[in-house]
Design a protein around this nucleic acid. Structure first.
Lengths: 144, 144
DNA sequence: CTCTCTGCAAAAGGTTTGCACGTCC
DNA sequence: GGACGTGCAAACCTTTTGCAGAGAG
């Protein structure tokens, strides 16, 4: 049996904990909570620091906003998240690591994935001398 | 001959002043200075509020950063500029209004235009129900 | 003369940092 | 026990706002 004397609301699933360890991150309570929210069901998520903080608060975990920022960057550096830049003033973090693109609802600030296959970028210019293209971002802005 | 008694360093060219008036904006000293920097030579420019502020200061015009922000938004609303979002935390303004895309040098923060013709986006997904695609942004991120 | 723009300072986000304390291994 | 993470508050940076005074038409 597992630890029975601590029926916390953010009881981590083993795969989430393993995922953190594989990424070289210690499995602290706060990281497990955030990882659980982000990765547990395998769905693609787009979060901001603020929205993730709210989600953690909603499930009863007490942690500070600074820790959310720290964890988001640690997860990003560990290759568990990537940053989507669609708005100067707010950073979005995306759990979907495969190449893909985004719809951005400018009114609501929502993001929606577009599978890479749905956008055919058939020709690209060469990178300038001495440069390497690290990523191709396609953003379809929706004004409705 | 034109006004000789005022050899100011930001003597506006007539076309810049006309451009402001056509856009429905009063030709104030500050706007003329900024418009001169942005539009005078017809080259495409990418500025941030801070860089434009510095450019204005460099040519000896005294104006406040808040005014630069105000003017940038006024120019944008008047259709003289557009915003390029490549970095959450800083807004770039682009004098090139034609459809086109961007190289973004992540190290230096520089932007470089890519003509629309150089990027062939041959298929796009349909906009979600009730939505309209207001813009397609393609950003090629360079890490060098 | 009126209406709008500007300047300033202050506030408002969002994000980062420094340091003492706590906790994972 | 030692290294690493966390919490808090304060700092930071970019951007916005409110209001009094200046300038354009």
């Amino acid at each position: 049996m597992t630890t029975l004397h601590k029926p916390s609301p953010d009881q981590p699933r083993p795969d989430v904990a393993a995922r953190l360890r594989q990424a070289g991150l210690r499995t602290t309570r706060q990281r497990l909570t955030l990882a659980e929210i982000l990765f547990a069901d395998g769905c693609d998520r787009h979060v901001t620091a603020e929205s993730l903080f709210a989600a953690a608060a909603a499930r009863g975990t007490r942690l500070s906003l600074a820790t959310v920022y720290n964890c988001l960057h640690q997860f990003t550096n560990a290759g568990l998240l990537r940053i989507v830049t669609v708005d100067s003033g707010r950073a979005y973090f995306d759990t979907n690591l495969d190449p893909h693109h985004h719809f951005y609802y400018e009114k609501s600030g929502e993001l929606q994935d577009i599978p890479a296959a749905d956008v055919a970028v058939s020709s690209l210019p060469a990178a300038p001398e001495g440069q390497r293209i690290s990523r191709v971002d396609v953003i379809l802005r929706l004004d409705g």
